[in-house]
Amino acid sequence: MTRWVLVLLALFLPCLAPAQPMPNRIYALESGMARIPVPAGKAWEVHDEAGRVVRPVAPADPDGALRLPAGGWYRLFRDGVPFGGRFAAGYIVLVTGQSQAAGLFDATDPRVGAHPAGPGDPPAPPVSAVLEGCFGRPGCPPEGTRWITSGAALGARILLAELARLRPGIPFALVNAARGNTGIADLVDLARPADGHLARVARAAAPVSALLVLAHGTTDAQRGTLPEAYIAGIGELVRLLREAGGNPVMPALQAPLSPLQDAYGLLGSGRLATWAGLAAGEGWLFDLRLAQLRPLNSATTTHAGLIRAAQAEAARRYGLLPGGEMAEVETGTDGIHWSAEGLRRATREAAAAVAAALPPP
């Protein structure tokens, strides 16, 4: 009997233990302060990176939380002993959409708008982070999400750097709630894996400061989704992520579907054209028919216009804020996903919109 009691305690006591700050986590500012849940009855101290005490609290506030101003990295100490990983207080921006949004967080596949940062690109600020879903990957925590620092991915680096420039002194985090090749119906269908990828990371970051729906709509333009169904889907997506992100009144921004262009390839390969840096149009490769243009399907072009109109109506109907101007964003060889320069432009547009929408600290 005693053995079974010990087994049950071993199983359930970890669930009852207070959550420790995960390494690199950023907690959202609410009315100028971030709330860090801790159990009462302990002597708590918060140190900055230089080891200075930021705010000693003994015991915790009556609601069982420390409140900290914007800044970091911080470390929490309980009765003089480090408790959990380093963390910061700032703003959390949840980014959703399909491959254009997913490309912000990837540095490996230019076919989906992902590009590595170059020597001339600004680094991400030292106090910044990204929350990603890591289901099934080596080293992934049981909760299926992890906080990482932004490194090689061009989009996340520029977005974080621009946000820090526009809102100096405030740490920022991005939450990767994007999923490639998904129409609006896929994103809001809770029976599909998208719920695990979108809503779960939103819950892990809660409370979220702002939501950015970035250049969604390509799949719906290709599928011919009816405009009214698309409008309703956008409203449901925003509702779902506001609820999962623990902030039903968070600003929600929408950057519209970006331009779709003719595709082109080299020896029949779009990847080879991207690797060779082939530019669309004239030249000896096109003259010899080694490179070919593949015109965009006219039905897709027409329906893309309907999707953009549906996005504008969704913005009016649900009070969505502008998420950046995408009309001049440059696409790559497939005519859909952004070139590296297009990604730079799109992220700067989005950063300016997000910074304007966030409340003052």
Rank of each mutant, 00 (worst) to 15 (best):
P126G: 15
A153W: 00
P123H: 07
G103R: 02
A102L: 02
G155K: 03
R75M: 14
A152E: 15
G84V: 13
F105Q: 00
P122W: 04
D121Y: 09
V81S: 12
V93C: 05
S99N: 03
G118C: 04
T149M: 07
P142T: 14
G113R: 04
F83L: 13
L76E: 05
V112H: 15
G97Y: 01
D109W: 01
W73K: 05
A156L: 06
Q100S: 13
V95D: 01
F87C: 06
I148F: 05
Y74F: 10
I158P: 04
V127L: 03
L163K: 13
A114K: 01
T108M: 13
I92T: 09
G85F: 05
I92Q: 08
E162C: 09
G97P: 00
A89Y: 01
V81A: 14
D79E: 14
A114M: 01
T149A: 10
G139V: 10
C140M: 10
V81W: 11
H115N: 06
A124D: 00
W147M: 00
L159Q: 02
G120V: 08
F87E: 05
R75P: 04
E162N: 12
G97A: 04
P123T: 08
L163C: 13
T96S: 08
L154N: 11
A153L: 09
Y91K: 14
L159F: 06
G139T: 12
T108Y: 09
S99W: 00
I158W: 08
G118E: 15
D121R: 08
A161T: 14
E132Y: 05
T108I: 07
E143I: 15
P142S: 12
Q100K: 14
G97F: 00
L76V: 15
L94P: 05
D79W: 03
A102P: 01
D121L: 11
T149K: 09
A101F: 00
F135A: 15
R78T: 09
P122I: 07
F77E: 15
F77V: 11
G90V: 01
I148R: 13
E143M: 10
F105H: 00
F83C: 11
F105D: 01
P123D: 11
G84Y: 14
R137G: 09
T108A: 13
P110S: 06
L163G: 07
D109I: 06
T149V: 10
P82N: 13
V130K: 00
A101Y: 01
L104S: 06
G103W: 02
F77L: 14
H115K: 08
G136L: 08
G139I: 06
G90T: 01
E162D: 15
W73S: 10
A124H: 04
T96E: 05
A89D: 03
W73T: 14
P123K: 13
R146Q: 12
I158Y: 07
D79Q: 08
V112F: 12
P82C: 10
P122N: 11
R75C: 04
R146S: 08
V112L: 09
P125M: 05
G120R: 11
H115D: 11
R78W: 09
A153S: 15
A129E: 01
P123M: 15
L94T: 07
R157W: 05
R86N: 12
A88F: 04
T96G: 04
D121M: 11
A164Q: 04
C140H: 10
A102N: 00
E143V: 13
Y74S: 05
A124L: 03
P116C: 10
C134K: 06
V127K: 02
R111S: 14
V130Y: 00
F135P: 05
G71W: 06
G90H: 02
W147I: 00
G144E: 07
D79S: 06
